[in-house]
Amino acid sequence: MDTPFTVQKRDFIAGLQKGLSVIEAFDQEQSRLSMTEVAQRTGLTRAAARRYLLTLTQLGYVNYDGRMFSLSPRVLRLGQSYFHSARLPRIVYPQVQKLAHALQETSSVGVLDAADVICIAATSAGRTVSPTLQPGSRAPAYCTANGRVLLAALPQERVDAWLDEHPLEPLTPHTVTHKDRLRIEIARARAQGFAVVDQELELGLRTISVPLKNLRGDTVAAMNVSVHATRMTLADLQERCLPALMQVQAQVRNLL
């Protein structure tokens, strides 16, 4: 994972930060927002939110229907710039393809971003088990196998701080929401070198994940295999998919 980097105050452009926060205010639950709602979500004044929204509208990143604002397809340029230029997605995508087609299951690679795991590569091999398993999608780190593997790579003090900072919501009846129990699950992932999550993100979704490390031993991403619970038991998931994941893990290490 990336090393924290601090910019000196004289070099920090607060306006850019605020403009990006306006874009990030829109999500799946709230795809259309009023000026007041954007101000509330970003902590900006209504006047400042108005200026940023109008500027983004002028630039083509935001649409305005006279009452509500929404993101335009041009925002995809920002994400595509990462997928086209970043080295990590280009390296792991062929491996994800080979793994998914060898197992005839869905596989994806994710990286940690604050509370979430962002998918940077995925393929379904003809079996789509969840809409969250596609490039650019986000899922809560605490209830995903990729998320637990990535959290397990953090020093324990950072794990504790992460648990204090982020709420744990019960997305299904199986979701682990007790912080002490989640701390144990993260420690288990660290000790055994992989994580298995059973229907905590979505009912019917079972996932196993391993960390992807570079030659220095730093975890830079996590790779999973996801199956539907009606087709494969947890024991079968581990027995069938873990060896293949570990094989890819070893191959990728020489490339990262």
Rank of each mutant, 00 (worst) to 15 (best):
M1H: 15
T3L: 10
R10S: 09
D11M: 14
D11F: 11
F12N: 12
A14F: 13
Q17L: 13
L20T: 09
L20A: 11
V22P: 03
V22M: 05
Q28H: 15
Q28Y: 14
Q28W: 14
E29A: 12
S31Y: 14
R32P: 02
L33W: 05
S34W: 05
S34C: 05
S34A: 00
E37F: 04
A39W: 03
R41Q: 00
L44H: 03
T45F: 00
R46Y: 02
A48G: 06
R50T: 10
R51Y: 12
R51K: 10
L53Y: 01
T55Q: 09
L56W: 09
Q58T: 14
V62I: 15
D65K: 02
V75Q: 04
S81C: 06
Y82E: 08
Y82G: 01
Y82V: 03
Y82Q: 03
H84N: 14
H84T: 12
S85H: 11
A86M: 08
R87A: 06
R87V: 01
L88A: 02
P89M: 03
P89I: 11
I91C: 08
Y93H: 15
P94K: 06
Q95P: 08
Q95V: 14
Q95K: 12
Q97K: 08
K98Q: 09
L99H: 13
Q104F: 06
Q104A: 09
E105F: 00
T106C: 01
S108G: 01
V109N: 06
V109F: 00
A114G: 01
V117C: 00
A121E: 08
T123M: 14
S124V: 09
A125K: 04
G126D: 06
G126S: 07
R127T: 06
R127Q: 13
T128Y: 13
T128E: 14
V129N: 07
R138T: 02
A141E: 04
A141S: 13
Y142F: 15
A145I: 06
N146E: 00
N146M: 10
E157F: 01
R158E: 09
D160L: 12
P167V: 13
E169W: 03
T172D: 11
P173G: 06
T175R: 01
T177F: 01
R183I: 04
E185W: 12
A189I: 04
A191R: 15
A191N: 14
A191T: 07
V196A: 10
D198M: 13
L203R: 15
G204E: 00
L205V: 06
T207V: 11
V210C: 02
P211N: 03
P211Y: 08
P211T: 02
L212D: 01
R216L: 15
T219A: 09
T219N: 02
V220A: 03
A222R: 07
N224Y: 03
V227W: 00
T230Y: 09
M232P: 07
T233H: 13
T233F: 09
A235Y: 12
D236Q: 11
L237F: 03
L237T: 04
Q238E: 15
E239C: 10
C241M: 02
L245T: 00
Q247Y: 07
Q247S: 14
Q249L: 05
Q249D: 07
V252N: 13
V252R: 11
L256Q: 08
